[in-house]
Design a protein around this nucleic acid. Sequence first.
DNA 1: CGCCGCATTGACGTTCGTCAAGTCTAGTGG
DNA 2: CCACTAGACTTGACGAACGTCAATGCGGCG
Lengths: 260, 260
Amino acid sequence: MHEAPGSLHSLHDRPAPPIKTMTPDKIKVACSNCNLRELCMPVGLQPTELQRIDDLVATRRRIKRKETLFRNGERFSALYAIRTGVFKTRVTAEDGRDQVTGFQMAGEIIGLDGIVNNHHTCDAVALEDAEVCVMPFDRIEELSREVTALQRHVHQIMSREIVREHGVMLLLGSMRAEERLAAFLLNLVQRLHARGFSASELVLRMTREEIGSYLGLKLETVSRTLSKFVEDGLVEVNQRHVRILDAEALRRLVNPTVCS
Amino acid sequence: MHEAPGSLHSLHDRPAPPIKTMTPDKIKVACSNCNLRELCMPVGLQPTELQRIDDLVATRRRIKRKETLFRNGERFSALYAIRTGVFKTRVTAEDGRDQVTGFQMAGEIIGLDGIVNNHHTCDAVALEDAEVCVMPFDRIEELSREVTALQRHVHQIMSREIVREHGVMLLLGSMRAEERLAAFLLNLVQRLHARGFSASELVLRMTREEIGSYLGLKLETVSRTLSKFVEDGLVEVNQRHVRILDAEALRRLVNPTVCS
DNA sequence: CGCCGCATTGACGTTCGTCAAGTCTAGTGG
DNA sequence: CCACTAGACTTGACGAACGTCAATGCGGCG
């Protein structure tokens, strides 16, 4: 099985041990030689530009499982690039109902919601021990005035998020439970694959309830639908470990009319 | 009843006649004295900056009812500021199902979805005859490198869209039909009010089916739920004309536990 | 060992979708 | 001016999908 460089995201049940022996926050790993660079930074920079990009990361921050990177209402100051671990973001209605708006993994950027009003409007919760690069937003703005590749990159990241959310709206607004779950699993495994993991196996870092919240379903429906997938031979499920046996069939589920 | 400056958005059933006698596209109305400036441009600019902003709008474009401003797959080149009229944006799944992702009105910016891949990923359809300002995106990027207020503004617009979509996800993922429709009506009337229209009356520029698509409901459910609101004395409905009689009750519907 | 959180499964109820009939309005053309 | 039509809307009857409630299982951890 293809493993990610540095084993960023273990497929075993327990969270992966830190890559290196506890790196104190002050000893920075520069963006310029970060193995996630292609994921979170623009490509094709001049060496001098690359050097300046290194300064974007003011510091690193470790977040333990179940702790929050930021919360609704907190002052916004920085964007965060995820180095290790998986997060969920969630919004909460005034009456307490909440909705998971996304699951984010290594190389993805979170915190964009805070830009409008200088305050975050959602919570970011670590689903496993995690580490992020803290990139003060005023520094990002300053630098992206000078490095046009960075400017373009920031715009693309935000646009990508908007497009992703369009997809979620389509899912929530017009798909049935099986289609939602199939789309979810395929999306997860595809993103993991892009990070060097298996194209057919994954470990869910979230509970059935969190999946349900994201997909607009109750946890029982998620569980039942998963069981149905197992019955039909589409996947193997062992706790949070999922092996996809028939990706083609899952794809057909998501997209009823497109046969094969 | 408070009318908008220039009667941009009539409350009568028929589309409002053009504000001025047909203005040829070449005769530009500069941003600097556009009555929508506070809605779509940054505030507190220096006069010299304001002047440069005027150059952002390359041209104007009129779109007739039911025609598209851009379509899924088309090359992305510009953002559009809506001057008059209402649009819907929609995404389409490969099997043809589509989902309305938003309704946009005067002063709002559309086209952000195209930035990531240089191609649009949704359609923007005019729900009534409309006019937009065409702002070539490379010009926006260029100018926002020099005018920091513009840079900040662009970031805020994109972030605002992300936050709005979070709200829609919450709605689609965890609200029931009555709550969705109540939230929809309150949101619409609030946005119209911000544009100088009545705080309690509105004319729907979209069909029941389009509302349903946006809210993840079938048109029959939208119709039934509206009828129920009428029975309960929350609103008056006459075709597409809606008068809100008990906004407080609608708000309570959206937010069950918060009692008045 | 026993507790706790997470997951599964079944029985039942509610909400919303589906299908179908019928109304209303605006637009068209005689 | 009025019949005719098409599209949007309403309403009812019924059914399917999913939520609710409850019992139970299972694995991990103190």
